[in-house]
Amino acid sequence: MKTKIIISLCLITILSALFIGAADKTPIAFADGKLPDYIEFKIPDGWPKPPINIFAKNKLSEQGFQLGKKLFYDTRLSVDGNISCANCHQQFAAFATYDHDFSHGLNDQHTTRNAPALFNLAWMTRYHWDGGVNHIEVQPLSPLTSPMEMGETLEHVLAKLKKDSAYPKMFKAAFGTEEINSQRMLKALAQFTGSIVSSNSKYDKVLRGEAKFTYSEENGYKLFKEKCAGCHKEPLFTDNNFRNNGLEINTVLNDYGRMKITGDPKDSLKFKVPSLRNVAVSFPYMHDGRFQSLGGVIEHYRNGIVTTQPTLDPLLVNKFTITNAQKYELIYFLNTLTDTTVTKNPRFAK
């Protein structure tokens, strides 16, 4: 009996001590006791853990996600009120720009690189084709302020949001007070874009035993593992590395990729390996959108690689021998990577 009382007393002390510790960490911003509805970010079964937890200092919540989504689709983020993030990142194209080598920015200007698809961003540590952006939260600063894209200033955007009738309330619901600042805006956008996960394609279903490949898809998968998986590593279908895949340089753009960021000649002509998930809907391909079709891409690996570039990836030094039949089987397999939980999910739609 006595022992039981002692144990209970101890437990109370321990729990209260823990509570004091926990209370210290609770953001004071939520003093009125109305915490947002926090969401757990789920890592698909069997997937690697993201290299950093992008939500560690930006706790994912339903209110934060909804605020981020509103911002993502809001054209007022651009100086002329015509361009939102979604203009170049269209859901039906897995958040790339459908059928455009370069996207349209302010005053009918073109960007100089193909808009990348947006999904599984939580597994990336470097963003953009050249990896110049080192955190998901600071990525939007680039298109927002680029004179070729949205052409705005942070000051103006924040002023517009503050004048809006809905935003102050949404910022309060997500972050505790009505204060609108750049950090909160960027964190909310990261909650939305970071939540887009592609892990439910036919390929995934086959791996989970919920579906079966056709004969051609199966052959294509075998060929993929043999020829492509060195860079397009499963399950993300990218190793998130920077490589030179032997494209002839476009002498108008003279885009040397990663070297622009690191200043290192060893990084000349290297670009980020894109994921092949949703590849069938995110054409055209490559950093400058030079290939319209998957057939064109495979043709490049068969016959188009410029082998004289000193930084050419060692995995590409020997030409790919792929028969015409294999080429089509490979395309059949790549089509199984389209994931409608990204492209058609109302949760990510406007």
Binding site: V133, E137, V138, L144
Partner: peptide, 22 residues
Amino acid sequence: NVSGAQTGALDPLNDMFWTWNS
């Protein structure tokens, strides 16, 4: 420099943050 969106003196509003090469 690698921890995402900051505030106060480190707010990108202060025009001291490179957006193309974080």
